[in-house]
Amino acid sequence: MKQYKTHSNRIFSLVVNLVMLFSLFACLTPFLYMLSLSFSSPRAIINNEVFLFPKEFNIESYRQIFTYPNFFHAYGNTLFYTIVGTAISLCLMVLFAYPLSKNKLKGQKMIMKLVIFSMFFTGGLIPNYLLVSSLHLVNTRWAMLIPFAINQFNLILLINFFKTIPLDLEEAAIIDGLDYFGILRKVILPLSGAALATVGLYTAVFFWNDWFNGLIYLKSSQFPVMLFLRNIVTGTSMVGDAAGAGDKSTIAISIKSAVIITSTLPIIVLYPFLQRYFVKGILIGAVKG
């Protein structure tokens, strides 16, 4: 269909493209600015000469954070929480979602009601804290992993996906002598790659970005990298040791930026390749309403 090139339509498409360019600029600039700060010299930063491109390019701040043992440690902790947390979470959610995807299973409706109710009314901060502490999980890494293993939104997403798998496949598998555990492993899971990737990514992002639970449950050697970053920002954790004798506040800016970049890098780098899975999730969720 040919667009009519009227005057008003031309202005319209100009406005549209300007708005889009502005959105791109707004989304990207903060990262570019951090990137250029992290590669700039403290002298250029203190003289306010750094904008969207690094000034007096150097990698000193990265060299420094990599000599800083707490940073490495926190980064390793985050990797651990993300990998183990996502694995536990996926196992529990798959085992829960598959039976719950069967509408006619006795008790299914009641359990679904429990799941949905818990999305709207939660225990709240203090009862959750007291539960975790009375289970003796405080100051253990489990406190980061266990309380968040099942997310109701992701669970419902999986249930909805499992419901779309044709029952014929399952019936054929039963005739072939498979039990339900076998069906789940050999029929359902191989067909659920996209849904598992979607839910797995949401979960991984959750664990990667989590810091508050680290703050209330963990001791400092167990801190994830986001909590480490937050402590640098609020000044409760020292980067000064690594910064040496120079102007601490300015050196800290390039170091802070380097920590921001390194701790966000996995998401930024992997994001373009994985974004279709992220989007899939919101659309499956939206169908549900």
């Binding site: 959750n128 539960l131 339900y180």
Partner: peptide, 26 residues
């Protein structure tokens, strides 16, 4: 087997979502 599958997650769910809810009596 379908119920067996659910035992662990359901138990988990009751402990971590419903116990704190009743914890509100505090």
């Amino acid at each position: 087997q379908l119920y067996l599958m659910m035992v662990l997650p359901l138990l988990y769910f009751l402990v971590f979502k419903y116990v704190p809810m009743f914890g509100n009596i505090l």
